[in-house]
């Protein structure tokens, strides 16, 4: 695993930090420095609330290397409250419980580890919202 590559993307993986377009107010994730809507330069950091809902999903039974221990698990397209769609693994949920439109929230979890001796990679996943309404 390339340690430097993971280190450079720590902000977006740990905190869901993307960008906001100073021209049209569009919120961007992952950060790309240019607004996909108006093509204006967009380098202002914006941290997302982490709230969203499941837009679509797929259950993984044959996992890529490094993710075998999690099968079966669900990868979802999550529509963030602020607009962008992002792809993420769902956690703390049984695969049959996942539904389109299900409210989810971002949590920081172990994404993968590089064997018993390598580094641990942490990043965002989404899970069903915990707080009871009050």
């Amino acid at each position: 695993m390339e340690v430097a590559r993971f280190w450079r993307t720590t902000g977006q993986r740990y905190q869901l930090t993307g960008e906001i377009c100073p021209n049209c107010g569009n919120k961007i994730f992952p950060p790309r420095d240019v607004c996909p809507t108006c093509e204006h330069e967009a380098k202002t950091a914006y941290t997302f609330s982490g709230k969203g809902e499941v837009y679509s999903y797929s259950t993984i039974h044959a996992a890529p290397e490094g993710f075998e221990k999690y099968v079966p698990y669900t990868v979802a397209l999550v529509r963030l409250q602020e607009g962008p769609l992002i792809t993420a693994q769902l956690t703390d949920v049984d695969t049959h419980e996942v539904k389109v439109g299900m409210p989810v929230e971002m949590v920081t979890r172990v994404l993968r580890e590089d064997g018993e001796r390598g580094m641990l990679v942490y990043g965002y996943k989404f899970r069903p919202a915990v707080a009871s309404p009050r």
């Binding site: 740990y14 221990k69 999690y70 956690t91 703390d92 949590v107 920081t108 979890r109 172990v110 994404l111 641990l120 942490y122 996943k125």
Partner: peptide, 13 residues
């Protein structure tokens, strides 16, 4: 703890 949890992730939450 679940498979993707440890003291770092639990502390963060």
């Amino acid at each position: 703890p679940g498979l993707d949890e440890d003291v770092a992730t639990m502390s963060i939450e």
